[in-house]
Design a protein around this nucleic acid. Structure first.
Lengths: 143, 143
DNA sequence: GGTGTATAGTTACTTTTGTAACCAACAAGG
DNA sequence: CCTTGTTGGTTACAAAAGTAACTATACACC
């Protein structure tokens, strides 16, 4: 009947990863959702622009491994919130350069702080040593 | 401009968790998707019935922390594939007991083996020690 | 019994995501 | 210049997930 090496779902790493990711994501998503009505992709796009400065949608897509349609929609949403501004590139007229506007910058600063606080809490919970090990492992798995 | 403790997105654990989870999930989802045209929730429901035997949708929902509408839809899909059978409970006529049928059992066996193989591969990649540590950490985070 | 509340499960509606087609601009080779 | 192929970006359509409302049964208390 069952395979001889029948195992628990809670021993299956993809399942565990997902459960942990969902729990953590949901916790932080409340922050950007409640404060700014943002979706996860919007937060990620905002983060990239805030952290690395003006860039094109394509570049965000590449760096963050987000599909271009998702980026496109997130950019529109952020634009509607007056968080960013589009500027046509001079070298390539297909490209639009995206940059945060003051309200977007403020949201980025606020959310960055919240993220750092969230991370600090996690560190307190797991300990510096174990959190470091976790990060290392996750980076390996993400590739 | 940027908060003084500006950090990388790749140092943000929720992000890392998500990236790792997505990578791993996608890898294994190809198996049940390509072989049986199943979605993730369907695989999880199938797993619960295969591993723990006949139970109600509500019980799956509870044990697996899947919303009842998702379970309901997954059950319908599995029924359409002739993977499971519904049987009204005698004690409570609201309840339907779900059990795998032979094709569902075969799919469960096959996918369990594939999952175990996947897990073994991961273990080879990370080492028993580190995989154990990872699981422990993830369980803590999932709660 | 009758009334109120909780539960199992489905369905309808809305939001979000995924996929594919599309447009406009570039680039290379003839 | 004119193909042909590629790339940045948007839009249209389809699939999936989330939320809320609904049906039917159960259960508790009067």
């Amino acid at each position: 009947m069952a395979p001889d090496d029948d195992f628990e779902l809670t021993d299956f790493t993809p399942y565990l990863l997902n459960a942990a990711a969902e729990a953590q994501s949901q916790e932080f998503s409340r922050v950007y959702r409640d404060r700014y009505g943002m979706l996860r992709t919007e937060w990620r796009v905002l983060f990239h622009l805030g952290r690395y400065g003006e860039m094109s949608a394509r570049e965000i897509s590449r760096r963050a491994s987000i599909h271009k349609t998702k980026v496109s929609r997130a950019v529109s949403a952020l634009e509607a919130k007056r968080f960013l501004q589009r500027r046509p590139s001079e070298e390539d007229r297909r490209v639009e350069l995206l940059a945060l506007r003051p309200p977007g910058r403020a949201a980025f600063d606020d959310l960055s702080r919240a993220a750092a606080a969230h991370e600090a809490e996690l560190e307190a919970r797991l300990g510096t040593q174990r959190l470091g090990e976790l990060r290392l492992l996750l980076r390996e798995l993400a590739m």
